[in-house]
Computed example of a mutant assay.
Amino acid sequence: MKQWLLGLGILCVMGLTSANAVSKEVLDIEIKETIKTFDKEVHGGAEFLEKAKGYLVFPNVYKAGFGIGGEYGEGALLVHGRIVDYYSTLSASIGFQLGAQKKSVIIVFLTQKALDDFRKSNGWKVGVDGSVAIAKWGVGEDINTIDFKDPVVGFIFGNKGLMYNLTLEGSKITKLKK
């Protein structure tokens, strides 16, 4: 039974990956738009990203499931505001789930060590190779006034604004050749 469920999960993820692969040019445009949306949603967002050592931007992370779920998205790592490499994020899950959703994810590296550890990895798994704290703060509060204790902070948002109580645990981030 477990092998059958695992196989179904793999098929779901494969469907997501093939359906959502985009060209480098399209991805670059989507990344710029996602950063603009982040700046609109998060007071002080642009300044926060400028101070970061680097950040991953996944404009469209798709999740679909019917008992077995999969999640996939493509994005890029930006350092000093410039794209340096392209990456994919992938995860699978088992449990009560039905439907589909799309979200955007930005993962910010606040220290040089965290960025270097990520870049040296060969497939970085959230929660194993590094923890990502999901950012939370008060409405109207400037993100730059918060003292984050974790070296890596994640933001999850969609067409209804920032999303809370979501996790990135178990997501595997792998370098792409674009």
Rank of each mutant, 00 (worst) to 15 (best):
D85E: 15
F48D: 02
V108G: 02
L90E: 12
D116F: 00
V61I: 14
F96Y: 14
F48Y: 07
R119P: 00
I68C: 05
K63P: 14
A64H: 06
E71D: 08
A52D: 00
G73S: 06
D116G: 06
T111M: 06
G45Y: 04
L90R: 14
G69Q: 09
R119K: 13
Y87V: 03
S104T: 13
E50P: 06
F66L: 15
W137E: 05
A52R: 00
G75S: 08
L115W: 01
I107T: 11
D150P: 09
G70M: 08
S91A: 14
Y62Q: 14
Y72H: 14
V139E: 13
G67R: 09
A114D: 05
G99Y: 04
G67M: 13
D85Y: 12
K103M: 07
S131P: 10
G54C: 04
I68N: 06
I143E: 00
F66K: 11
L115N: 02
G73H: 04
S121R: 05
S88C: 03
E71H: 12
A133E: 12
V57D: 04
G69S: 14
L49M: 04
I134D: 01
V132T: 04
E50Q: 10
I94G: 13
V79F: 00
N122E: 10
Q97K: 11
D147I: 11
V126P: 02
G75K: 09
G127C: 15
Q97H: 04
G67K: 10
F96Q: 15
P59Y: 10
D129G: 15
S104Y: 02
D129V: 11
K125H: 04
A100H: 03
D147H: 08
G81Q: 08
E47A: 14
G127Y: 08
G69H: 05
W124P: 12
A64I: 15
I68S: 06
K53S: 06
S121F: 01
E71S: 15
V57L: 10
T145K: 13
I146K: 09
L56W: 04
N122L: 05
G54P: 05
K102N: 07
Q112Y: 05
K63W: 01
F66H: 09
V61H: 04
S88K: 12
K125W: 01
A114E: 08
N144Y: 01
N60R: 15
E141A: 10
Q112N: 13
V105Y: 01
Y86R: 11
L115Y: 01
G123P: 11
A64Y: 07
E141R: 08
N144M: 00
I94Y: 13
S121Y: 01
K136L: 04
V132C: 03
R119E: 02
N144R: 05
G138V: 08
I134N: 05
E141S: 08
A46S: 11
F96K: 14
V108T: 12
G45Q: 08
G81N: 12
G69K: 12
V57G: 08
D150S: 15
A114L: 04
G73M: 03
A100V: 12
K51I: 00
D147N: 11
S91H: 07
R82M: 11
G65I: 07
Q112C: 02
G140P: 08
D85P: 14
T145I: 09
D142F: 02
T145C: 01
E141P: 02
N122C: 02
Y87H: 05
K149M: 06
G99E: 01
V79P: 00
K63M: 07
I143C: 03
S121G: 10
A76M: 10
S93W: 00
G45S: 05
